[in-house]
Each structure stands twice: as structure tokens, then as C-alpha cells.
Design a protein around this nucleic acid. Structure first.
Lengths: 227, 227
DNA sequence: CGAAATCTTTTTGTAAGTCAAATATAGTTA
DNA sequence: TAACTATATTTGACTTACAAAAAGATTTCG
């Protein structure tokens, strides 16, 4: 046995990191639910034998994520975090790695191919009409705008009726565009907007498989960019 | 015009919140990249006219997300955040809302239906063999275990070759299970493990469409739970 | 003159104490 | 009994202090 293995990690973990981890573990272990009240800062500091300062830095993190809430001068309670809040804060194309950006670009393709079942399960007359209006407007423009393009796809996410999914797309949108613009050199022969009407048609009077085939065709240029 | 609208927000925003927002905006506006060095805590505090304490609480948040790194006693630099770090910390079924949990449950179905193209683009002989081994082992057990079930699906995510996607699935796994267990009452007539071999077969010698049909059949009981 | 040792400066990590302000509770008064 | 008052609690924010590590500047010595 080589003892070196046990020495490797080291990881430079600060008091604040440790307190944050301890608190999250504590919440999970005790099945804390939103609304439950928490011990005060001073009590936590004393129990963990650190300064109130360190505790506040850890709590500040949890507060940012929405895990806890502080009713000013009345104490802290557990809260219901926005699951995508943490994601939102790191959505900065300058600091994310190129590989991560490309992973996200691929994710879009997976999502738009995969959402078919839910679209068919939940589509309404009104949805279809809206899509048709978007397509019509797009066709009337001499040049297709990126805004109209986005509007069409965003509407599809909306139609799934899945709020988290919808917000997810809004967060990812800037990354899509950033990566797409970086790749534009890869010349796309088939401008996609001509296929939007095909997608709507499949959605309106076709089967789930028809839709997926139309979507696949529509996304083909993007697939070419990744696989 | 009603002035009341302008009074509504109020939002109880703390100094720390404001500093955090200011810093993130500053990084974005100036296109800060990983490795770039940042002004010191004291300088930031003076520039923003707040105490060093407040600045440290804001920086602590950014450090948690991996946006910045502090080389102890040498200064801070921009870093490359783990895009899913924030998500990981709020993955606690007790504090997430029921609607969010169900949204995530649906997301799984979308992902597994949507990943087909990438599986076919990147599958290898070895991948197929591994899947077959998993199915074989599963068939040999008197009772299918949840571990083997997870192993099969995890392998599929692996095969996409998309690291972010893969980690995403690992994070979501506990939520899937939690929601699944809560819904078990909805009696599933067709135990899914019998279809795993069908999926592998489609993946091995079928078309992308064959795979999607097999997967759809496999996931049918889950779809029943949501739509 | 050059290399090695030492000192100084810088900067983050951690601690401790102070004060303000809002709220809940207890206590008091009419 | 109801209204008012005082008190204790608790978070938000500021200040000061010091340790420790690393880098740079300075000094010392061969």
C-alpha cells in the first residue's frame, strides 16, 4: 500500500467551503423542507467553532442559490430554490470552456428531437395558429431574421408545457447563438427557415414520427456541425 | 400612468446581492477570461464603497460557482466554472417543488428520445458489447435490480460522448428515482427490463428510427405517468 | 560581482467586536 | 380587556486586527 495516495487530495479547502458543505449535508440529512426555521448565525458559528464571518460567507452562498431565506432580523428559514439559478450565473460564453459550449450546442439538438411526444400530447389549435403566424411572417420578410428564427423554436419549447424546460431553453439561447456564430464558416447550404412550414405541417396533421423526420431534416445542418 | 407600478418591486436586495451582480456584470462587460487577474478585495470594497466583508460574501458566492479562484495570499483570478456546479447544490428532492421535480422527470424522457442521432453517430463495437453484457446480466437475475436498470441507461448517456450531458444525467438521477418512487402506485403493467434487449438490437443492427421506436416503447409506462 | 539569505510588502483567510434597525414577546398602563 | 411600552433577539453592515504565504526588494557573504 502506498501512503502517497492518501496525501494527494489536499484541495485547499477553506473553512467557508467546509461550513457550506456541512450545512447542506445537515439540511439533507434532516430532510429540511421550505418554511422550516434554521438556527441563528451565532449558534451555527458556536456549534461549528468558527467565526460568524465564515458562517455568513457560507450562508451567503446558500442564500444566492435560494436554498435559504433570511427574513431580516427575524431569523432564517429554508426556501424553495430556483433549480436553474446557479446555471444562470455561470452562463458567460467568455469563461465557459469551448468543449462545454459545444456540449450545450449538441444538447439543443437532443432536446428538439426529443420533445416530439410532449408536443403532440399537449398541442392546441391556438398553438398551431401561432406557429403558422410566425412562419407566415418569416416568409414575408425579404431576409430571415435571427429573432424570428428564435421565436419559432422558443414557441416549440413553450408548447411542451414544461416550465423548467422552457426556462432552460431561454438560458441556453445565448450559448447557442454564440457557438453558432463561431461556426458559421461551416457554410450551411440549406437555410433552415424554409423547413419551418414543414415542421408545422407535421405537427398539425402528421404523426409523431412525421414530426421527428421534419425536425431532423430541419436540424441537419446543425448536426453536420457536430458529428 | 400609474406610479404604483414603479413602487412595487422593492425586492429587499442586500448589499451583497448588489455587489455580486455588479461583479458579474463587470466580468461580462469586460470580457474577462479564465486566468485574468482581478483587483484585490480591498480595492473592490473601496471602489464600491462597501465594507470588505460584503465584498467577501459576494466573492464567496462566485468562488463557489467556480467563476473566480483565490490563490491564497496572492490574489484572485478568473476561473472556468463547472457549468453544473450550481445545479448540483440544489439537487435536494425535499426542497425542490413538486412541479419542478415532475418537469425534470419529463426532461429525462425528452433526453432519451432525443439522443438517438448521437448514439448512432458515435457508437462503437465495444459500446454494444457492454450494453449486451448489461442486458445479459440483468436477464440472469431472478429479480431486476434498480442498479442494473440505471447502469443500462447511464451507459447510453456515456455513448453520446458528451461530457456535460453525461454529468447532467448523473445529477438528475436521484430526482428521477425520487419521483419514480412517488409515482409507483400508478402501476406499470409492462416491466421495462424486457425491452432493453430490443433497444440494443435496434442500436446494433437497426436504423435511427428503429431505435427511437424501441425506446419509445420502452419508456411508454413513464410517458403514461406524465401525459 | 554574483549568489544566497533575509526582510518587507502584499493579499487572502479568519476572528472578534460594534452598532443599527426591525420584529416578536413580555410587561405595563389606562 | 385593549392599547401602549420596553426589552430581547437577530440579521445586515462596518471596523479593526492578525496570521500566513508568496513575491519582490534588500542585504549579506563568498
Amino acid at each position: 500500500m502506498n501512503d502517497k495516495q492518501n496525501l494527494v487530495p489536499l484541495g485547499n479547502i477553506s473553512m467557508t467551503d467546509r461550513v457550506e458543505n456541512k450545512l447542506r449535508a445537515y439540511f439533507l440529512k434532516n430532510a429540511f423542507k421550505p418554511g422550516d426555521s434554521l438556527p441563528g448565525e451565532i449558534e451555527i458559528a458556536e456549534k461549528l467553532n468558527v467565526s460568524r464571518n465564515v458562517v455568513r460567507e457560507a450562508l451567503s452562498r446558500l442564500r444566492m442559490l435560494g436554498i435559504i431565506e433570511s427574513r431580516t432580523r427575524r431569523g432564517m428559514i429554508m426556501a424553495r430554490p430556483d433549480i436553474l439559478g446557479g446555471l444562470e450565473r455561470v452562463m458567460n460564453p467568455f469563461i465557459l470552456g469551448q468543449d462545454t459550449l459545444e456540449d450545450i450546442f449538441e444538447l439543443r439538438l437532443i432536446l428538439e428531437m426529443g420533445m416530439a411526444e410532449f408536443l403532440f400530447a399537449r398541442k392546441t389549435e391556438k398553438d398551431i395558429e401561432e406557429l403558422e403566424a410566425i412562419v407566415k411572417k418569416q416568409a414575408s420578410l425579404n431576409e430571415p431574421t435571427i429573432e424570428e428564427e428564435i421565436k419559432f423554436h422558443t414557441k416549440l419549447y413553450d408548447m411542451t408545457g414544461n416550465e423548467t424546460f422552457k426556462r432552460f431553453q431561454i438560458l441556453l439561447q445565448p450559448i447557442f447563438n454564440h457557438t453558432f456564430n463561431n461556426k458559421k464558416k461551416h457554410k450551411i447550404h440549406t437555410p433552415d427557415h424554409i423547413y419551418h412550414d414543414g415542421i408545422v405541417k407535421a405537427l398539425k396533421s402528421g404523426s409523431v414520427e412525421d414530426f421527428r423526420l421534419a425536425m431532423k431534416k430541419h436540424l441537419k445542418p446543425y448536426f453536420k456541425m457536430t458529428v
